[in-house]
Write a protein that binds this DNA or RNA. Structure first.
Length: 466
DNA sequence: ATGTCC
């Protein structure tokens, strides 16, 4: 039987994603005896002459949908610029050519105003990870990233670093009991947060069915490079967070907006790619006009996903810190996959997309993690205009997940961890420390972008297994 | 990153 995919439908002119869902739904249930080619031929016929199918019980629904949309043009095509907009690259030596090429393509979009590439950059979908892009009244879902609102949160706890050794067992048990990583199952205890009461869940049709999953996943962490870890915090003198220089215990988490943000990203990426047609190689950089209905919906949904990601970190920190009978003295947190309305140094109003980049306006605090065996940096932005007020979001991958798997064994990774004095709960060789660039090199490449206020050394790390 | 396509 014909097993139609969204891609096949795009090729025969079914560009609307609601229409494609409808077609896949109807054909998979009712046309089991058709071959794939027969189905495609039938769908082409329906598309070319929908009126002839209106009376049919099954295909009529597809025909109605096509006719309903026939009035308005469904997409707009654009050309690229002849000359790129300004793009400053930091730490160019450590960045793979493919990531630079992706960034160069982004500087040719007609909506682009300015760009910057951070020293941890590597290839991604559309915009590279580590890419920063300012646009004019347009938002590019793929320049925000698939994990909208992916972010860092650091709680500095009121105990000196010896707490880590004395309470190692309790910390390990708390991490096992009060975090949940990855896709299956969830937390044992019900989580609450005002973000679940957001009216936006009811204002946008595609969000309504996502709320129940958001309720279930609140306070959980993702997979891949997401983590929750306790470690030793070293605060430098002249820090701006108002704590004496010295050593502390701290909790650092990295996670995003889970299934909610993923569904939002998928939905609006499809709309952008269907309505904004670009020369083939740049199609993934399709944007939504901020004045369009879809653009305004995306902005609201993206903001909700960002708030939800923040809420997840809040729940994780509250649960862990309470389990250890501690209190947070200070919290530092930042998104690193998001878009903001902002102003360039020349006064132009733009949308700044940061896809794996830390906001670094003058005095703005942020966290740049290394790997599970190397320190994270507490930084304060310098507000550098050429960097679009940004910094790197980590050390950056040096190896793909596949390459990391091939080049590291479980036992070799255990030795790395033991030598670094780090306990890992869960985790996988895909995230092994050697799969990442050297954090010291990456930090050194952005001395114009941030001041360093402290360092965090991971000691007990919890990640998703596999 | 993500019930890895509704």
């Amino acid at each position: 039987m014909g097993n139609l995919r969204s891609k096949d439908l795009s090729k025969i002119g079914y560009h609307n994603d609601q229409l494609r869902s409808l077609v896949i739904g109807i054909t998979s249930k009712n046309f089991k005896h058709h071959s794939r080619q027969q189905l495609l031929d039938l769908l082409v016929e329906i598309k070319d002459n929908p009126e002839a199918f209106l009376d049919d019980e099954l295909t009529g629904k597809i025909a109605e949908k096509i006719i309903g949309r026939a009035g308005a043009p469904s997409f707009k095509a654009f050309e690229l610029r002849n000359e790129p907009v300004f793009c400053k690259t930091y730490g160019s030596k450590g960045i793979e050519p493919a990531a630079k090429r992706q960034m160069e393509l982004a500087t040719l979009l007609p909506v682009s105003v300015q760009a910057a590439l951070m020293p941890d950059a590597h290839m991604g979908f559309g915009l590279p990870i580590g890419g920063v892009l300012a646009t004019d009244h347009a938002v590019i879902p793929y320049a925000v990233g698939m994990d909208i609102g992916c972010r860092m949160a650091l709680s500095i706890i009121g105990e000196n670093e010896s707490f880590l050794k004395r309470y190692e067992y309790q910390i390990r048990e708390a991490l096992k009991a009060h975090t949940h990583f990855g896709m299956e199952g969830g937390l044992d205890t019900r989580q609450e947060h005002e973000v679940l009461d957001s009216p936006v869940f009811n204002e946008i049709a595609m969000l309504k069915p996502l709320r129940s999953k958001a309720v279930r996943q609140l306070g959980t962490s993702g997979s891949g490079n997401h983590f929750a870890e306790f470690g030793e915090m070293e605060l430098f003198t002249d820090n701006t967070i108002g704590l004496p220089a010295g050593k502390y215990t701290a909790l650092l988490t990295h996670s995003g907006s889970r299934g909610l943000g993923s569904a939002i990203a998928r939905h609006y990426t499809q709309i952008a790619m269907n309505t904004c047609k670009l020369p083939r190689h740049s199609q993934q950089l399709a944007w939504l006009d901020l004045n369009s209905e879809a653009g305004q919906e995306y902005w609201l949904a993206m903001t909700l996903a960002g708030d939800y990601a923040k809420a997840c970190h809040e729940r994780i920190h509250a649960n862990l810190i309470k389990a250890l009978n501690q209190e947070a003295l200070r919290v530092v947190e930042n998104h690193h996959n998001f878009a903001w309305k902002d102003r360039l140094t020349d006064g132009r109003d733009v949308v700044i997309h940061r896809k794996g980049a830390t906001p670094a306006h003058k005095g703005e605090l942020g966290i740049i993690p290394g790997s599970m065996t190397t320190p994270a940096y507490l930084v304060s932005g310098k507000g550098t205009g050429n960097a679009l007020y940004s910094a790197s979001h980590g050390s950056g991958r040096a190896m793909s997940r596949q390459k990391a798997k091939e080049s590291m064994t479980v036992s070799a990774m255990k030795k790395l961890l033991a030598n670094a004095g780090v306990t890992l709960i869960g985790g996988s060789v895909e995230e092994n420390p050697l799969a990442y660039k050297d954090i010291e090199t990456v930090i050194a490449a952005q001395s114009d972008l941030v001041d360093i206020q402290g360092k965090f050394y991971p000691r007990i790390v919890r990640m998703n297994k596999e």
